[in-house]
Design a protein around this nucleic acid. Structure first.
Length: 415
DNA sequence: TCTGGGGTCCTAGGACCC
DNA sequence: TCTGGGGTCCTAGGACCC
């Protein structure tokens, strides 16, 4: 299990040497929460997901650099890291923007630690991004190894659970809630039945865990015992595609909601076609803010089904707008809108209908053309009028950094 | 006043089929 | 008076992950 250290802050520090020794925090979309923190911020006790406005003064006092999120940069740096990692293993599963599984089975166990350290130094040299590695016979154990690697700040950034002498002691330092796959609810229930750490769970009876919880818990237990239950996965096609955003400011009227869901439907459609799929339905949702106790929470969603599965943005927009008109109520101050594409299947295998026509070849050609133009000349070179032109409701991002690696004008100059 | 945006898997229960 | 046995599909909700 390979995991980038403080990935977003390190992407930013990479291109801004002056920030090297300063605390760096990255905000969520709309500059709402802190979603990534450098070590200094973690050590200062700033929690993950902290609302920015509540911590602004403390952060200022620390002389912290706070930036809006720059996903163009993080996505590009991520693919550089993944490409480097891929050169070291016959099989790699990219698990998230900053994590990957490498298959090291068949390698000589005696050489694994050194090999791991080579992977770490090469990745750092090629990308500037520091990584940590946990090695073990199963995914759940490798996650634990990775955690220990970071917690103990192991020199070389590699921790191999296979070369540990006293595994029982190591496992008993891992709180049950820190095991991959066990969240708040389950850890509470586990503790109530006397299971407090990874060692306790490893020694539990898998059958009993299945009865008491479910098959997922049984698999975690077996993985802790060293029996692999989770294989390498190859997820290129999503089963659902979501596009949603909070508004820069609250929205009350129907017009902006229609523009917003049209834009989200357009983005979702791009993602859908990029993976060669069509969808059978689109769900739209709108909601108010969740945190104001003096304001009633309102949320509603609507589902539009397509008689024949589609990947045509015009149909997606139509479905989304119909849905919004159905559920819109006057009064609430809306904070967020979004769409979800469902019932996704391959574009080559569309079930026709006796009474309705599906996407024509002209439709497919049109969408492909729009996608190509936007890819080549930049996003929104062509857009749908329904998305609106001014988009006064769009999200706030007041502290953006340059797209250092993906926009010609932003490429840093070295002098 | 201001609090993100994506995803997955599993289970239970209802409705239906022969 | 007595009333079988074997399935599928769909949806909502819960739990988890980054």
């Amino acid at each position: 299990m390979v995991d980038c250290d403080n990935f977003y802050p390190n992407c930013e520090k990479n291109f801004m040497p002056a920030w090297k020794d300063r605390p760096v925090g990255v905000l969520s979309n709309n500059d709402g929460c802190l979603v990534a923190r450098s070590n200094e911020l973690k050590e200062a006790g700033i929690p993950m997901g902290a609302p920015y406005f509540k911590y602004r003064e403390q952060l200022q006092a620390m002389n912290a650099v706070i930036v809006s999120s720059n996903y163009a940069l993080y996505g590009d740096m991520s693919s550089r890291v993944m490409t480097t990692l891929g050169q070291f293993s016959p099989d790699i599963e990219v698990y998230s923007i900053d994590e990957a599984w490498l298959d090291l089975s068949g390698f000589d166990p005696a050489t694994l630690d050194a090999y791991g350290r080579e992977i770490v130094t090469t990745t750092k040299r090629h990308t500037g991004i520091p990584i940590s590695m946990g090695i073990a016979p199963t995914k759940v154990l490798a996650k634990i190894a990775n955690r220990i690697c970071k917690r103990r700040k192991i020199p070389g950034h590699v921790f191999n659970l296979g070369s540990v002498e006293n595994l029982d002691v190591v496992l008993s330092t891992i709180d049950v809630g820190d095991i991959w796959g066990i969240g708040k609810r389950w850890s509470k229930k586990l503790r109530a039945s006397g299971i407090y750490n990874a060692r306790d769970l490893r020694d539990a009876d898998p059958e009993r865990m299945r009865k008491q919880f479910n098959v997922v818990m049984q698999r975690i237990t077996l993985e802790l015992q060293g029996f692999p239950c989770l294989g390498f996965e190859d997820i290129q096609t999503k089963k659902q595609i979501i596009a949603s955003r909070s508004f820069g400011e609250r929205v009350k009227s129907l017009g902006p909601l229609l523009e917003a869901v049209a834009m989200h439907a357009t983005r979702a459609g791009e993602k859908l076609r990029a993976q060669g799929s069509v969808c059978g339905a689109i769900q739209v949702s709108i909601r108010t803010g969740r945190h104001n106790p003096n304001e009633a929470y309102f949320r509603e969603s609507a589902l539009a089904k397509f008689p024949v599965a589609t990947a045509d943005t015009r149909r997606l927009i139509k479905g989304a707008c119909q849905g919004v008109k159905q559920i819109y109520r006057k009064g609430p101050r809306y904070a967020k809108a979004g769409v979800m594409l469902l019932d996704i299947s391959p574009a080559q295998m569309v079930q026709g209908s006796l009474f309705e026509t599906g996407d024509s070849t002209r439709s497919a050609a049109l969408m492909a053309t729009v996608d190509q133009i936007n890819q080549f000349h930049g996003r929104k070179t062509l857009f749908f009028a329904r998305e609106g032109v001014k988009q006064a409701w769009s999200m706030k991002r007041s502290m953006t950094t340059p797209a250092y690696t993906t926009r010609w004008e932003d490429i840093p100059v070295v002098s």
